[in-house]
Design a protein around this nucleic acid. Structure first.
Lengths: 140, 140
DNA sequence: ATGCCTGCAAAAGCTTTGCATCCGC
DNA sequence: GCGGATGCAAAGCTTTTGCAGGCAT
């Protein structure tokens, strides 16, 4: 039995065609951050006849099941990525739109410290750096 | 000449009734984070006949002028707050919806360090902690 | 067979825009 | 008076939902 089937069974979701295809898309090499629309277009490209509404429903279920993580970056559209277990934050190159992942134990620690100082525990957090390539040395 | 008029002149915006009233709402005591809808409702409460579209247009102009800052927290609606000059991040109590502001020079420093390590400079950033009140001692 | 899933279309929620009118300077 | 600003309504976008039929178990 393949990996995707096992994954769906594991989280208690019925193994249906749309769910399999969508999960496979996220398992593809190099795929990282996709919007619902991105997923939908990829499905169309693979000659799949799956409705956009289903894509949204499945992504929501996957998120609830902990298979994927949803991010609300700027720009209106939510982006989803496979939850590979290790938490990380994001840096977005505002010129190219490229997304870079990073982790900082130090920042994580400080966040908890700050929350605790205010009498809270962190439930979740979102850290996004909007960046621009550092100016290269002039090439003239 | 009052403070709001000066502020509008300073950023080069014509001093109109809607812009004055909206700016005054943000200048009110205790006001911190408002959605466009919040601002609109407050205007209605003050017997003002200003359209929601105008509220959006004015908020957008204020943001471009640096008078207010726009945040895209979770939940679809953008929230705006007066830009009082000193940058800060946010902590949101997911139970009450309360927003707490905080600053951490340490985290700011680490962010720049991380961006630099990847060859970038930070253009902007967003850090939001979704928190819950720390569990009181069990009472059973 | 049963109950969850899906596709389609419609609706919903937030924000933007077209247009005729109005107002600040 | 002129050009930008506003109100209203309509449109735009992303996401959600109702419903009838379909499919996994």
């Amino acid at each position: 039995m393949d990996q995707e089937t096992k994954e769906l069974r594991r989280v208690g979701l019925k193994v249906t065609h749309p769910r399999m295809r969508i999960l496979q898309i996220f398992d593809e090499e190099g795929v990282q951050h996709l919007t619902a629309e991105d997923v939908y277009k990829k499905l169309l490209g693979h000659q799949e006849d799956i409705g956009l509404a289903t894509v949204y429903r499945v992504l929501t279920q996957f998120e609830a099941a902990g298979i994927i993580v949803k991010h609300n970056f700027e720009g209106g559209q939510a982006v989803y990525e496979l939850d590979r277990g290790k938490h990380h934050d994001h840096m977005i190159d505002v010129d190219s739109g490229k997304v870079i992942e990073f982790v900082s134990e130090e920042i994580e620690r400080l966040q908890h410290e700050i929350a605790a100082r205010h009498g809270y525990v962190i439930e979740d957090h979102s850290l996004v750096l909007y960046v621009r390539p550092r100016q290269r040395v002039r090439k003239d």
